[in-house]
Design a protein around this nucleic acid. Sequence first.
DNA 1: ATATTTGATATGTTATCCATATCATCCTGG
DNA 2: CCAGGATGATATGGATAACATATCAAATAT
Lengths: 296, 296
Amino acid sequence: MDLRRLRYFIAVAEELHFGRAARRLHISQPPLSLQIQTLEQELGVALFERAGHRISLTDAGRELLPRARLVLAQAEAAKTAVQRVGRGESGALELGFTGSLPFTPVMPRVLHDFRRAYPGVQLQLRELSTREQIERLTAETLDVGFFRPTRHELLEQLETRVVLREPLLLALHADNLLARRKRLPLAALAQEPFILYSRSVSTGLHDQILALCLKAGFAPRIVQEVHEMPTIIGLVAAGVGVALVAASMRQIHVPGVVFLPLVETGVATDILLAWKRGPASPALRNFLAIALSQTK
Amino acid sequence: MDLRRLRYFIAVAEELHFGRAARRLHISQPPLSLQIQTLEQELGVALFERAGHRISLTDAGRELLPRARLVLAQAEAAKTAVQRVGRGESGALELGFTGSLPFTPVMPRVLHDFRRAYPGVQLQLRELSTREQIERLTAETLDVGFFRPTRHELLEQLETRVVLREPLLLALHADNLLARRKRLPLAALAQEPFILYSRSVSTGLHDQILALCLKAGFAPRIVQEVHEMPTIIGLVAAGVGVALVAASMRQIHVPGVVFLPLVETGVATDILLAWKRGPASPALRNFLAIALSQTK
DNA sequence: ATATTTGATATGTTATCCATATCATCCTGG
DNA sequence: CCAGGATGATATGGATAACATATCAAATAT
């Protein structure tokens, strides 16, 4: 049984006239008659009653008609669905991000634009540490990820682009005397209790800030390590200590927390978009196109 | 898009190996590769990821697989359903019957046997007058009918078979003095109020009984005409009069009604099975085979 | 390094499908 | 009642598509 034959059958069943049906199918009448005969032979059942020049459906034909329509419609639906996936208009995309990313301007904008452009794609958002993202990206259990720079041996298997560079700000409690200043040199923090990113999870920021402090002439007195940037804000508000955070953390309004720029220039952290090298799925290509077009 | 290609695709998607899939499909490997390529071209999407010697499904392929299975399964279901109808194991059958038929031994037995033999056939039962049945049978809005003999010009377009011949009994009220007798001659009813079948609806019985009475030497005093036999029983119970009914009306047990055989022999009524001449649907053929096999 | 496996390519053969031409039958109108 | 038109079936040749055998290129395994 062939989809073509089913289509032919439907045409004849609807027109109840071989000639008209053939015209509608853009073929001539004889092959249409033959195809119907073949179908009937194949099924072992007469589908049409040929009484003189008037034809009508048999019981078997009446049984087949709606079923044939169904099969054809679902074949058509399968085709368009597959093509949508092929064009990246449908499908699924798993997106990783670290805790600070939702507060940056870039990730919300990318998500918004992509969702509007490709509403058929299921975006799965997963808050994951930088390391987890890298591991899952290489293992292809994650399609694309937002995180900040770090060191990782698997990074070379990934493609990365900087999508935003934002300054690091000093976050400290309003009660701290230093909070009255407009800006501060890093060295002013030499005696302050320091909240720092965990060495194992946020290697990049940990190392970057340690290096900055050493360059400023002191080793920070680390009183707490945290995994994610937003956590820091809470700790600062609780008076645990001071910290360096990305500028977009200012989005988090917590009473008692003051953000101050550093005197030093060029102290900043990048936000990266990363995905695995090699052939990208259509949905991923579309996502990258939108995400990267906004960072020119 | 072709059902064959979908079948091929499913095989490759399940085996993830062109060679094994080809063996399973009983074709050689090259045409299988070509068919998959053709399908991919047709859809404009890659369905398999050919990384070296290991192939895997693309997103589009994963989208297609369940849909292809569905289309194929439904095509298969359509095929078997149509063949079932073709063999008369399925489909619909409209059966007409007059009010007295459910009380005869023949109709319940035929229905029971047919339902057991062909449970897939939808049997629509319609209580219709003899005349309506004949008209609908010729118009092919009824497939087959049970009724008693009658005269009708359309009858010649129908095929009829006698499936049961049952005696006519006298039905009268227990209070009637005649009810004490074991049997009665028809002439004994000469003075009794007579309930008769309607001339217009049950022409056959009407004429038959009138003729019998005349032969017995009297014209019945008709006090009531009815359309259906069971109605008579109620009227007899109510003391309206006496009537001649088929023997199977004894099935209806109503207090006060007595059934007596006639002295005359050979006073009987036939039950007919009727259907339209010409090619019968498979379901009808099977029904007739069962109905007629029981009346040998 | 070599043998084996695997999917792609090349080519000839066969089967299928379609179009033109024609036929048989039925219906319609004069 | 008969001729003409209409309708579906049949016959036949040509184009297309599907298949098998043979072969190749690349990757994996021993």
